Simulated scan of single mutants.
Amino acid sequence: MTRAYLAFTAKGLALAQKLAAAYPGSVIRCGHEAGQVHLADWTARQFAGSDVLVFVGAVGIAVRAIAPHCQSKAQDPAVVVLDECGRFAVPILSGHLGGANDLARALAAVCGAVPVITTATDANGVFAVDEWAKHQNCTVLEPERIKLVSGALLAGKTVQFASDWPIAGAPPDGITAGDAPDFALTLCPAGDALHLVPRIGVLGVGCKRGTSTETLAEAFAAFCAQNRLAPQCITAAASIDLKQNEAGLLTFCKSHSWPVQFFTAEQLRAAPGSFTPSAFVQSVTGVDNVCERSAVLAAGGTLVFHKYAHTGVTFALAVRPYAPDWRWQNV
């Protein structure tokens, strides 16, 4: 997580440095003297490149600075403002998904400030599905549907959920399992629910020599469509070391910001589980399956989607161990 602190005064700079000592990030003061930055320039740069912006000064100045850059709760970084005396810590953007509420509480604890949390679910002590999703390592596919879940809970209604994994602990007040869920924890979204997709997937890849990035992208789209898979679940890729210099594969993975791990044939043969064998793949690589075995090894978990072949490319998906918990605030 990248944090950036901006102070408006010398006193504020001292507080920003104290906060950064506890929660590291870059620290600078805005102004026109040497070593200082222009407020608008700094905000534009950090809004695009940092996960968290912390202003030490007046809320109004911070609001005007970030206003031209705000897009959506799914994209905006967390923004927190503290007054230069360290009396109040106010999250003003991306309180749940970006983690601004949590950070405001943490920074407040550093300097003895009062965290000023204004989100309705927090103010009313109601379950916040987007905050829970963040702590369960999930992408929220339809952030515009968050308000439907939160609004129902704030109105005293019961909200149904469904999950592809058992969730530890008792559901919060107002939340119950049901066949017509208002929100669902899943890799394969369907219907009108709010879908929370755990980022736990590893894509195993097999391909012919010289396979292009475009061919891989086309095959990947077909793989996701075939399995109704949300690609947002994937965080990494894996293959055999024979492919470690394949430009098309490397570019394909880079375009998705996936680190890619390569294994030897010997390592792949030792992967635990039952896999789809291929005599041809065995003759070329020395192991009977690349995509399934590499996915399982890299994930250290379970194979979910077996080998899928398309235009000379094979894909498989494994998931890392995952244990969602309703009691996330207490663990």
Rank of each mutant, 00 (worst) to 15 (best):
V284K: 13
F315D: 05
G273T: 11
W258Q: 01
L242C: 04
D288C: 07
T285H: 10
S239A: 12
L303R: 05
V290M: 09
A265S: 14
V260W: 01
A271E: 07
G286H: 13
A247R: 12
A323S: 13
F280R: 12
A299I: 08
A238H: 09
A299V: 09
V290G: 12
A238F: 07
F263L: 06
S257T: 13
F252E: 00
L249Y: 06
D288N: 12
H256K: 14
S255M: 04
G273I: 12
A271Q: 06
A318M: 10
Q282A: 15
T251K: 09
A247T: 14
H306T: 15
T264D: 01
P272V: 05
T251S: 09
Q261V: 08
P277C: 09
T264Q: 00
L268M: 07
C291F: 10
R293V: 13
I234Q: 04
P321A: 02
K307H: 10
V260M: 08
A265F: 03
P272N: 08
A298F: 03
R269V: 01
A237I: 11
F275C: 11
L250F: 05
T314Y: 12
S255I: 00
R293Q: 13
K254G: 09
A279G: 02
Y322C: 04
V290R: 05
T276H: 07
K254H: 14
S294Y: 10
T235S: 08
T276N: 10
V260L: 05
A318E: 08
P321Y: 01
L242D: 07
F262V: 02
H256C: 12
I240V: 15
T285P: 02
H256F: 07
W258G: 01
E292G: 11
N245M: 00
F280K: 11
Q267A: 14
C233K: 03
F262Y: 10
F280P: 05
P272E: 12
A316Q: 04
Q267T: 04
F305G: 00
S239R: 01
T276F: 04
L317A: 03
A271N: 06
V290F: 09
